[in-house]
Amino acid sequence: MGAASSSSYRGRFAPSPTGPLHFGSLLAAIGSFADARAHQGRWLVRIEDLDSNRAVAGADHAILSTLEAFGLYWDETVVYQSQRQALYQHALEQLRQAGLSYPCACTRREIAARGTPGPEGPIYPGTCRAGLPPNRSARSERLRIDDVAQGVSDAIQGHILQHLAQDVGDVVLRRADGFFAYQLAVVVDDAEQGIHQVVRGADLLASTPRQVYLQRCLGLPQPAYAHLPLVLGEDGRKLSKSLAAAPVDPRNPLPALERAWCLLGQTPLDATPSDVDDFWRQAIPGWDLGRVPKDPHRIGADEALTPASQ
């Protein structure tokens, strides 16, 4: 893969293997890769396959093959969350011993009936905070969230502030189906892999304050964050959930690369690239995170494959 670097910069791309790579995910991969390479840093790939019920057989290999076709070469062995359960269990035990987690017996229906409305759905009302109700068994495990305002400075989106108890409530650490929750796993993974800069899609911006809070609870370092603009379909929905979420074509990567470069607000290349390697030779020296727009893009399926005019 890529050559070693003395830079302390360590970035990552962490797709879920639920299907082929679509243009919205490609945009995130390109942004994180370009930022790492522009800083002479290392770029890692992590497959987020915590939920085996959602994983599609062979999707991980298809995603990795597509990344290679687009010149997105990683520097270290690809890790799979499904093989890192001991790390998550250790973190959960640490939270338990500190009195920062508790078992929860509530069902989604009960939370919906009793919780107050929040930006992402009903806020957990704290039913089991003081102990399980009589004759109820634990279904999940939650993190105790203090009544704090957690701020995060984002290199693209600016400073954001979230009142965790009011807007989120006590977040799940282990789900009722037995899987570790994404919020716990991603915090543990980023710390264990020494991630310095997280460049990812803005759909995860709202999750960042609770991840920073969880980092504090576990005594883990906080990486820097930059949340790239989302790519929306013509229907206004996130591209991965839209009819426009067609897989990118690894057989013809240059049009999608050029289109993504344009949507990321970067200066057009000096010359039409002859191939993928030539694209990156021209692109990386000119990468500027400060040029990335924060507002989402609305495109159709065909636009994702059409390079902008220069």
Rank of each mutant, 00 (worst) to 15 (best):
L67S: 00
S32Q: 06
A36D: 06
S6F: 04
S8Q: 08
S65I: 03
E48L: 05
A57C: 05
S52E: 14
Q40M: 14
H22K: 05
S32L: 01
Y9M: 09
S101W: 00
A69Y: 08
L87P: 03
G31F: 00
A69K: 00
V78Y: 14
E76Y: 14
H39Q: 13
G41E: 15
R10W: 14
P20T: 14
T77I: 13
D75G: 08
L95I: 01
I30K: 07
N53P: 06
R37G: 12
R37H: 12
D51I: 06
D51S: 07
Q83E: 13
A91Q: 04
S16M: 04
L72R: 00
G19N: 03
G71T: 10
G24T: 10
V79R: 15
Q85P: 07
A105G: 07
V78C: 11
F33I: 11
L64M: 02
H39E: 14
P20N: 13
P15A: 04
T18K: 00
F33D: 08
A69T: 01
A62T: 08
F33T: 07
I63T: 13
N53W: 12
V45L: 05
V78E: 07
V79G: 10
R37E: 03
L26D: 04
Q97Y: 13
L21H: 04
S82N: 09
W43I: 08
Q81S: 12
L67K: 06
E76R: 13
F13N: 10
L87W: 13
A59K: 00
Q94W: 07
A57D: 11
A29D: 05
H61T: 12
A69W: 01
P103D: 07
E68S: 10
D60H: 01
P20S: 15
L100Q: 11
L50G: 03
A86S: 14
S52N: 12
I47A: 05
R84H: 15
Q81E: 15
T18D: 05
A55F: 10
Y73T: 15
S82A: 06
C104F: 10
S65Q: 09
L21G: 14
I63Y: 02
P20I: 05
Y88E: 11
L72M: 11
I47G: 02
A62F: 11
L64S: 03
A29M: 00
L95P: 03
R54K: 09
E48I: 00
G71K: 03
D35I: 11
A91P: 08
A69C: 02
E93I: 13
L21F: 05
V45Y: 09
G71Q: 02
A57F: 03
Q94S: 10
A86G: 15
S7F: 01
L27R: 06
S25G: 15
P15Q: 01
R96H: 08
I63K: 06
Q89P: 06
L100Y: 11
A59R: 01
D60W: 01
S101E: 08
S16A: 06
A55C: 11
A14R: 10
Q94A: 07
A36P: 05
A98G: 03
H61F: 11
F13V: 09
H22E: 08
F13P: 01
G31N: 04
Q89V: 10
F70K: 00
S101L: 02
P103A: 05
R10P: 02
A69L: 00
D35C: 00
T77R: 14
I63F: 06
